[in-house]
């Protein structure tokens, strides 16, 4: 057997061995579990009319938010509960929380209602939390909400076992 073939096989074998190691590390990397973000685009396609309207509203809200206040919060962070560590970027959209499958943040919590609360920006770009008539209530810093209230940055909002905060 020629020297060249053997050299190629020798280096090829080492390359294949390391390829296995690298693939194994990739498998470990992808072996994460925790939270999942699913796009709901497919489900919305069968009713197209609302979609074109939605983006302009959002865009207005988002721009208003950015123009209105300099230090406006940019993300929502879940600090307690089964979704701990999840962040959602605030871009002027309404965020719904509850056990219902179509909520933005789906809570797996017996103490949360199907449609528990929502968080949305008002015209000045402040973020408002509103309780949607939930059974156990939504708490902002230990006070139970009775009406829509703006969320100060860093204040904990408690829903069942889940606590969320707005951060910059």
């Amino acid at each position: 057997m020629s020297e060249l073939t053997l050299t190629v096989m020798r280096l090829g074998f080492l390359a294949v061995l390391w390829l296995f190691v690298i693939v194994a590390v990739q498998v470990i990397r992808s072996d994460l579990f925790g939270t999942r973000v699913t796009r709901r685009a497919a489900a919305v396609q069968d009713r197209p009319p609302p979609r074109p309207q939605a983006p302009p509203q959002d865009a207005r809200g988002g721009r208003g938010g950015r123009r209105g206040q300099r230090g406006a919060p940019t993300k929502l962070v879940v600090t307690e509960g089964s979704l701990t560590g999840t962040t959602v970027t605030l871009q002027g959209q309404t965020i719904t929380l509850g056990r219902a499958h179509d909520s933005t943040i789906v809570l797996d919590d017996d103490y949360a209602s199907s449609r528990h609360a929502r968080i949305y920006p008002d015209r000045d770009g402040r973020w408002i939390v509103e309780d949607l008539g939930s059974t156990n209530g939504t708490y902002l810093d230990r006070t139970r909400l009775t009406s829509p209230v703006p969320i100060p940055p860093g204040a904990p909002v408690r829903i069942g076992k889940t606590v969320i905060e707005l951060r910059k």
Binding site: F33, G34, T35, R36, V37, T38, R39, R40, A41, V44, A54, D58, S82, L83, T86, V88, T89, Q91, Q93, H101, D102, S103, T104, I105, V106, D108
Partner: peptide, 9 residues
């Protein structure tokens, strides 16, 4: 981002 859902898996 408006049409995404976050849940635990």
């Amino acid at each position: 981002s408006n049409t995404s859902t976050i849940s635990s898996v």
